[in-house]
């Protein structure tokens, strides 16, 4: 009897030990690239350039031989990173505002009204998510250039053009995410407000918007992050005056030289807005992601 109990206990201990071992392994796999990025950002260019995996004394090390802040101080020296940063901030904030303002009424309509075409509309919203971005990049680019030439409004390499493009990218998922949040707010609340004399739109603004603030904030942050991270369209549609960080960061590696230290420092700098925004709204974004992925 006693031995059996002990065996059960030791089996439990073993399981516990194995669990922590696997947890440690997972944490290690997740963290190694970040550790390498941080370590690299404090290394002198000379150390990086002279390191060599085949020479035991010169192997790239985890601890910088002569830790330096130069990569951070000079992050803007060879590559105009601060300018790219400003471009990204303007485009991402613009996208955030525009996508939220457009997604809110659309999500509200999908959540509250059983209008004819609701199903078709929902499917068309979701379908855009499945299309390869490259499929509409080519015609979009050609239309951009034609419109610019005929109307005289430049769209390529302008903030307006980029914000417009990214807003419509952010919209499908924003609408789905916000709709699932609004579905959680009972219809009776709108009706109560309307009995009290509110119009439909007033009810939306004065009653629903405050209640849905977490959902709206999550959508806003999603739109910001999406615009901040986008690579494909930015690589074609942005130029000198709108180049974003996602593309600009590649300037550290050129045909003539590779400034890995500078690039790692820039990587950390451009991750900060995303990390801060995501962490502040983690719960709602994660819920929205799960809802968007599973409820469709």
């Amino acid at each position: 009897m006693k031995t059996r109990k002990m065996r059960v206990r030791s089996a439990k201990k073993l399981k516990r030990f194995a669990t922590y071992l696997v947890v440690l392994l997972v944490a290690l796999v997740v963290l190694v690239p970040y550790a390498w990025m941080i370590s690299g950002s404090f290394k002198e260019t000379l150390e990086l350039q002279s390191s060599d995996v085949t020479v035991p004394g010169l192997r790239p090390s985890w601890i910088p031989r002569g830790p330096t802040l130069r990569n951070y101080r000079e992050v803007n020296l060879t590559v105009p990173m601060l300018r790219y940063f400003r471009h990204s901030i303007i485009i991402s904030l613009g996208t955030m505002v525009a996508a939220t303002l457009l997604a809110l009424p659309a999500a509200y309509a999908l959540s509250r009204f059983n209008f004819r075409g609701r199903g078709v509309y929902t499917i068309s919203v979701l379908a855009t998510q499945m299309l390869p971005g490259i499929l509409f990049l080519i015609p979009y680019y050609l239309i951009f250039t034609t419109v610019s030439r005929h109307i005289g409004i430049p769209l390529r390499d302008t903030y307006g053009g980029m914000i417009f493009t990214y807003t419509s990218f952010a919209l499908p998922f924003s609408i789905v995410m916000l709709r699932s949040y609004l579905n959680g707010i009972p219809l009776e609340i709108d009706e109560q407000a309307m009995i009290d004399g509110c119009t439909q739109l007033r009810a939306l603004w004065t009653v629903i918007v405050p209640l849905a603030t977490p959902g709206i904030a999550a959508v806003a942050i999603y739109a910001f992050i999406m615009a901040w991270n986008e690579v494909l369209f930015a690589s074609v549609l942005t130029g000198r005056s709108t180049k974003t960080v996602a593309i600009g960061i590649m300037d550290y590696i050129t045909a003539t030289g590779a400034n890995w230290g500078g690039m790692m420092a820039a990587c950390i700098v451009i991750s900060i807005p995303v990390l801060v925004l995501f962490t502040s709204m983690q719960r709602y974004i994660v819920e929205g992601l799960i809802a968007g992925a599973t409820k469709g």
């Binding site: 690239p33 970040y34 390498w36 990025m37 690299g40 992050i225 901040w228 991270n229 690579v231 960080v245 996602a246 593309i247 960061i249 590649m250 890995w260 690039m263 790692m264 990587c267 451009i270 991750s271 995303v274 990390l275 995501f278």
Partner: peptide
């Protein structure tokens, strides 16, 4: 949540 441009550049470095 790490931006693609950050994650894949770090992997390129690795």
């Amino acid at each position: 949540i790490t931006p693609d441009c950050v994650a894949f550049n770090v992997w390129k470095f690795i």
